[in-house]
Design a protein around this nucleic acid. Structure first.
Length: 436
DNA sequence: AATGCGGGGTC
DNA sequence: GACCCAGCATT
């Protein structure tokens, strides 16, 4: 027997050992999770979308609320998008929610409301990529497809001592081939979940718990003593900082007790979510140092101009608090200022005509205000002047949203918050404000 | 192949 | 504070 053949035999034995003992361990140790209590393909699908880049403990309450509110594919397909977003509020990566509903419509219309069980059909659903397709096919239908996520790549890179960079595309393909070879006959669903369960509970990113690991005996990285340095993964580049000025505008008169919120554009960052209006802060004076806070007067002035340009008639009064919000690629530092709505001035005849021609209000608290149109119509020259007064554009990662500044504005009270989906940072700010 | 896209837990 | 998590869409 040549060395090569001996190596192959050893590796083959290592694979068989791995599959057998991992599966045995899983049957004993698997967690009781809501989506494991039934074999409902819709539940599996929802859970897999929610679990993208998100931990199990975070997902559980969202999953339970979601299937209560949208028990079937059809219920999800027919729901208003705002309700789906509201159900996703705080979970992050909101395009998942919109893609999921898009896919629910696909399933309703193309597959009679039944989650399809063939590879091409599942893969064709919006928001379903290589991992999620494999997860749905194997867990819901026990099809022998690999489901390779970050956990699986970590486990396999250690057990088989694979030093490929898991951030690279080809590495995932390689891992999928390996994972497919490991699936025991008729056990695809359990085996794929076992791999991920091991990654989540035992073979963790830092300080893996090797002693209770069911496959430690043949783990190549453990045997070589390099389990802590695997997997190899190139570092993500750090998020860029962005200083922004936010307005918490308190209404007067008919808006008393309400604050002004704005809806974000339909695409891009936090698409269609609601927020406190905010704008890039101009860079602090060079003399102040890079991290220097904008002087209060300059910030108030800047905010006043931004609001005016956005058609918001309000006066910034005082700094309220700072808030930080970290995305994977941006870090916002929001300086929030309390502002007061200004008394509405008598409208010019020209703008009154536009105002009266506008559609009738849709109820009190939920009445939309097309601020830009109203402002542009009411004060076209003022708007132009103010635009001219603006300092030269400085770097903003949110340039499109800032330039368009097109979101609908609404005055809401505490109870209205139940009808709008907010990113967590604004949820916390608004809750904090209304609690006072 | 690289980048945009949330939010939170862990060490 | 650094990492990274049951990734996908877009370019």
């Amino acid at each position: 027997m040549t060395t090569d053949e001996k190596h192959v035999e050893t590796r083959q034995e290592a694979k068989l050992f791995f599959s057998r003992f991992l599966l045995e361990w899983y049957h004993i140790q698997k967690r009781d999770l809501p989506w494991r209590r039934h074999r409902n393909p819709y539940y599996i699908w929802i859970s897999e979308i929610m679990l993208q880049q998100t931990r199990v403990d975070t997902v559980i309450p969202y999953f339970n609320r979601f299937i209560e509110r949208f028990p079937t594919v059809e219920a999800l397909a027919d729901a208003p998008e705002e309700e789906v977003l509201k159900c996703w509020e705080g979970l992050g990566y909101y395009s998942r929610a919109r893609n999921l509903q898009h896919a629910a419509k696909q399933v309703k219309e193309n597959y009679g409301g039944q989650v399809p069980d063939d590879r091409d059909a599942v893969f064709g659903l919006k928001g379903v990529g290589p991992y999620t397709a494999g997860a749905i096919l194997s867990i819901a239908f026990n099809r022998p497809e690999p489901a390779v996520d970050g956990n699986v790549m970590r486990v396999l890179s250690r057990y088989f001592l694979i030093e490929d960079d898991i951030a690279k595309g080809p590495t995932r393909v390689k891992m999928e081939k390996l994972a497919a070879e490991l699936i025991p006959e008729g056990e695809a669903g359990s085996f794929n979940q076992a791999l991920m369960e091991l990654g989540a509970l035992i073979c963790t990113p830092k300080s893996p718990r090797c002693l209770p690991c069911p496959v430690m005996e043949h783990c190549a990285a453990r045997l070589a003593g390099c389990e802590a340095s695997l997997p190899v993964k190139t570092k993500a580049k750090p998020p860029r900082p962005e200083e922004r000025l936010a307005a918490l505008v308190e209404g007067r008169g008919e808006h008393a007790g309400r604050v002004l919120i704005r809806q974000r554009p339909a695409s891009g960052l936090l698409a269609r979510m609601w927020e406190l209006p905010h704008w890039p802060a101009p860079p602090a004076e060079p003399g102040g140092g890079s991290g220097a806070l904008l002087p209060e007067a300059a910030a108030l002035d800047r905010l006043r101009r931004s609001m005016s340009q956005a058609g918001i008639h309000a006066r910034p009064e005082e700094h309220w608090m700072a808030a930080e919000h970290t995305f994977s690629h941006i870090v916002w530092t929001l300086q929030v200022y309390r502002c007061r709505e200004e008394a509405v001035l008598p409208l010019a005849a020209e703008s009154r005509a536009v105002y009266l021609a506008a559609p009738a209000g849709r109820g009190d608290s939920a009445m939309a205000v097309d601020a830009d149109a109203a402002q542009a119509a009411a004060q076209p020259q003022a708007a132009a002047l103010q635009a001219d007064e603006q300092p030269a554009l400085f770097d903003s990662g949110d340039a499109a949203a800032d330039a368009a500044d097109s979101g609908a504005l609404r005055w809401i009270n505490r109870e209205d918050m139940a009808n709008y989906a907010f990113p967590n940072v604004f949820l916390k700010l608004l809750n904090s404000y209304f609690e006072q």
